[in-house]
């Protein structure tokens, strides 16, 4: 759970500054005071929570099917961790990183009341390497409950960054926060790379 939380927290910071700045105007647009902001934000977070809940269930069920073969179970998760972790590290160091957030699509939504829900869906499904890692983790857990817990930790870690979103306008040094967030995501990638290697070595020893 700790590693899922760390992954959520580190990728969440970069996500907030990349996507949060797109979401902010939409979440806050036309909002009349703190109550409205709180409702919009809760809706947004609730949607993310629901999506993660569904993803955790799906990942675990697919995992059960795919990883039932011991050979696959010993090698594939380790390899997947390494591949996604490398993608995460690449994302953090690459100059050609796409700075556009999938939440840009929100511009196509007309009904303002649906915006927080729409954003919640887009944000949680914005397939980034961090999500791939957590999907792998969910798929390889022993029980469904463990898969939920992994996703919950990821959800909590990444959501913490969205709580001060109403204050986003006042955050100075957004660039610094974004840079540090992106670099921290890369470091989380390294942690998962080591985890993947350990899994793989363990798999080789067991296999």
């Amino acid at each position: 759970m700790t590693d899922s939380f760390i992954l959520g927290l580190s990728s969440g910071s970069a996500c907030l500054v990349t996507c949060g700045m797109v979401m902010f105007p939409y979440l806050m647009a036309g909002s009349a005071g703190v109550k409205r902001i709180a409702i919009d934000l809760s809706l947004f977070l609730f949607t993310r929570f629901v999506i993660y809940f569904i993803l955790a269930t799906m990942a675990w069920y697919f995992g059960q099917a795919i990883f039932s073969n011991p050979l696959v179970r010993n090698f594939v998760p380790g390899i997947l961790y390494i591949v996604f972790a490398v993608m995460l590290v690449w994302y953090s160091i690459s100059n050609s990183r796409n700075p556009k957030c999938p939440a840009e699509i929100v511009k196509t939504v007309n009904d303002k009341r649906l915006v927080p829900i729409f954003l919640g869906v887009v944000n949680s499904l914005g397939f980034c390497p961090a999500l791939f890692i957590i999907l792998t983790k969910g798929a390889t857990q022993g029980t469904l409950l463990q898969s939920y817990l992994a996703f919950l930790a990821f959800f909590v870690g990444s959501s913490l960054w969205f709580l001060p979103l109403p204050l986003a306008g006042q955050i100075q040094k957004k660039e610094v926060l974004k840079t540090v967030g992106i670099l921290a995501t890369g470091l989380a990638g390294i942690i998962f790379m080591i985890k993947g290697l350990t899994n793989l070595i363990g798999g080789i020893i067991n296999g």
Binding site: I6, L9, N95, V176, T179, V180, L183, A184, G186, I191
Partner: peptide, 23 residues
Amino acid sequence: INEISRWMPFAVLFMVALTAALT
């Protein structure tokens, strides 16, 4: 070097402070 690497120690600080606190 890539300009953003200057901020790497802050990312390391963030990660080690967090992992140390949790573990």
